[in-house]
Nucleic acid binder design. Structure first.
Length: 187
DNA sequence: CAGTGGTTTCCTGTTT
DNA sequence: AAAACAGGAAACCACT
C-alpha cells in the first residue's frame, strides 16, 4: 500500500527523525491546513494575542490577518485524497526550515502563492508573501512571535552550509549543493 | 548532566 | 520611509 514514489522516498528521508511522524500510514493526515488555519484553537490565539511586540501594532496585526486571509486556500482547501501520494502536506512534518520551505514550494495546494519558483531548474525561488510564510513557519514551530525578519536570519545561516546560495535580489533564494529533494527530475 | 545543531531573538548598520 | 539584507552575539531547546 505504501507505494514509494521517488518523491516520497525523499520526503520520508527528510522526515525520518521527526518526532511528529506517527508510525501509521503516510496517508493518514496529521492535520490539514484547513484544520490548522480554521480551527478555533488557532485563530483566537492569533487575533487576541496582545502580549508580544509583534502583535501590538494594530496595522501589523491587520496586515498579518489580511495576509492570512489572502491565502484563502489555506481555509478552503483541505487535503484531497489524491494528495496522499504526492509530496504535499509534508511541510507540516519537515523539521528543518529549509525542508519546510522546499516542501511548501512543492505543494501547490498548501503554498497558496506564498512561495513561487523563479527558475525551477536552477532551484531559484521567491518569497511572495513573507508575512504569511513567517506565520506558517511559526505555526509549524508553535511560535506566534515568528516574523520574516527572524526567519530570514535563519535562511542566511544556510549560505554557510551550502543549503542555500545567495541571490542578490530581494526575497529571492536558491537551493545550494547541499539541499536535496527539490529537483523536478529527481522527484 | 554536557555538548551540539539548528534555529530564535535582538541589535546595529546598510541597501533597495 | 518601509521592508529587506547582513551578520555578530547570545539565548533557546530538542536530542544524543
Amino acid at each position: 500500500m505504501l507505494s514509494l514514489f521517488p518523491s516520497e522516498r525523499v520526503m520520508l528521508d527528510s522526515v525520518t527523525h521527526s518526532t511528529f511522524l506517527p508510525n501509521t500510514s503516510f496517508c493518514d493526515p496529521l492535520m490539514s491546513w484547513t484544520d490548522l488555519f480554521s480551527n478555533e484553537e488557532y485563530y483566537p490565539a492569533f487575533e487576541h494575542q496582545t502580549g508580544y511586540s509583534f502583535f501590538t501594532d494594530t496595522e501589523e496585526t491587520k496586515a498579518a490577518i489580511k495576509d492570512y486571509a489572502d491565502s484563502n486556500c489555506l481555509k478552503t482547501s483541505g487535503i484531497k485524497s489524491q494528495d496522499c501520494h504526492s509530496q504535499s502536506r509534508t511541510s507540516l512534518q519537515s523539521s528543518h526550515l529549509w525542508e519546510f520551505v522546499r516542501d511548501l514550494l512543492l505543494s501547490p495546494e498548501e503554498n497558496c502563492g506564498i512561495l513561487e519558483w523563479e527558475d525551477r531548474e536552477q532551484g531559484i525561488f521567491r518569497v511572495v508573501k513573507s508575512e504569511a510564510l513567517a506565520k506558517m513557519w511559526g505555526q509549524r514551530k508553535k511560535n506566534d512571535r515568528m516574523t520574516y525578519e527572524k526567519l530570514s536570519r535563519a535562511l542566511r545561516y544556510y549560505y554557510k552550509t551550502g543549503i542555500l546560495e545567495r541571490v542578490d535580489r530581494r526575497l529571492v533564494y536558491k537551493f545550494g549543493k547541499n539541499a536535496h529533494g527539490w529537483q523536478e527530475d529527481k522527484l
